[in-house]
Design a protein around this nucleic acid. Sequence first.
DNA 1: TGTATTTTTTTTGTCGACATAAATTCCGTG
DNA 2: CACGGAATTTATGTCGACAAAAAAAATACA
Lengths: 234, 234
Amino acid sequence: MSDIATRKPKERKRGSGVQFVYNVLRDEILDLALAPGSPIDEIQLAERLSMSRTPIREALVRLAAEGLVTTLPNRSTVVANIDFLNLHTFFDAITLMYRVTTRLAALHHQPGDLVVIRARQAEFAKAVEDQDALAMIATNREFHAAIAAAARNPYYEGLFLRLLDEGRRLLRLYYSAFNDRLPQQYVIEHEDMITAIAERDVEKADKLASEHADQIVSQIRNMIARDNRQKIAL
Amino acid sequence: MSDIATRKPKERKRGSGVQFVYNVLRDEILDLALAPGSPIDEIQLAERLSMSRTPIREALVRLAAEGLVTTLPNRSTVVANIDFLNLHTFFDAITLMYRVTTRLAALHHQPGDLVVIRARQAEFAKAVEDQDALAMIATNREFHAAIAAAARNPYYEGLFLRLLDEGRRLLRLYYSAFNDRLPQQYVIEHEDMITAIAERDVEKADKLASEHADQIVSQIRNMIARDNRQKIAL
DNA sequence: TGTATTTTTTTTGTCGACATAAATTCCGTG
DNA sequence: CACGGAATTTATGTCGACAAAAAAAATACA
């Protein structure tokens, strides 16, 4: 547990305050260290990070613009809820972004891109080998983010990163359920996607991305269903 | 020219400050009243809107998160540039969003949605009849925004609105070129799209949206090409 | 005259404080 | 004991001021 959030004042340089708060809050939100729906007290946060409320508020505005927190006027801002009732919109959008970014990566990737993508894939494979569920979540995100970067479309990339983050939050909810055979299969699917991108085979890349997305979506659905059954059984 | 931005202090109620600044700046940016690349002086803005720099800065952070301004650390924030070199990424993304939102609207629209969509279409038709280019841009945006709302997917909707706004900026650049027969055709295409949505004919809606997007993209391309030729001829 | 260096000015990032709107507590009345 | 309204407390929205960084101006030197 790194206590990066509790260092002495004046240890950070000027101008990095907002970015720092943004990173801390963002990580805590995506790791579910801050529970969805829980209120964020500006004063308390200001004390914890040893800075004034001004940079805190600016970071909160930024997080609100990205949908990670919700600001109620004249009332506390709260960590964004996970909308289980409308998860299908999430699945629909992230599936499309998986496909589009992988397609475009096959079309537009440049020499250096594959090096980065393969590096991310190596990190993901390492996490799977180590059975480190949290590392799997993080490295899987970076792998697909690298593909999105190679797709060279900032609009798709922006939406996809947002969706991947939201997915990170979802997976974090159920990460204990990762002790099955699926991760190893993801490694293989990733390898196939890299090959398709390298060969600039757009249709194959699309097909693989589509299947990969379906895998992940159905895995999350299973985890939720399993979770629901437990709840009903109580 | 409404001078909404120059009213007396204390005439606005508490809590609406940031929203107000955001709306003013956003409109001025999208209408090209603020030129792309031009710097935004916080102090000057604070004086013009008769408020302190704090709400100004929070509005700027929000605009930065949406890509409408760019903040250089410890340096002035500037109005986002129009990236003519990468317009194809814009065209690609907005075409896909036209299709996806229209498809999903055909699938998921609910009783009230068509009423709203038809109302927007009526406003657009009125603008075309009046040969009011600026109103055409605005009402066309609202028409497609209404379809996106009926599609009931906030992820697609968010990206699409961003793209429509960026398109508004582009069209505003060339709005004088609107004196041709195309707007009338857009009215007809809109009508067809409404019919397809009402009939829940997903594939037809997709096809119409796709063609509609192609129309608009090629029109913008033509305007830019025409503009370029003039520049070269000088 | 041109370039390097110091000084001044401008502008941003942050702070502490105050005013106002909700939330909470307290109290009186039925 | 419950209910409604007033008083208190808490937290947000905004402000003016200061400090640090960059830009601009002024000066020194070749």
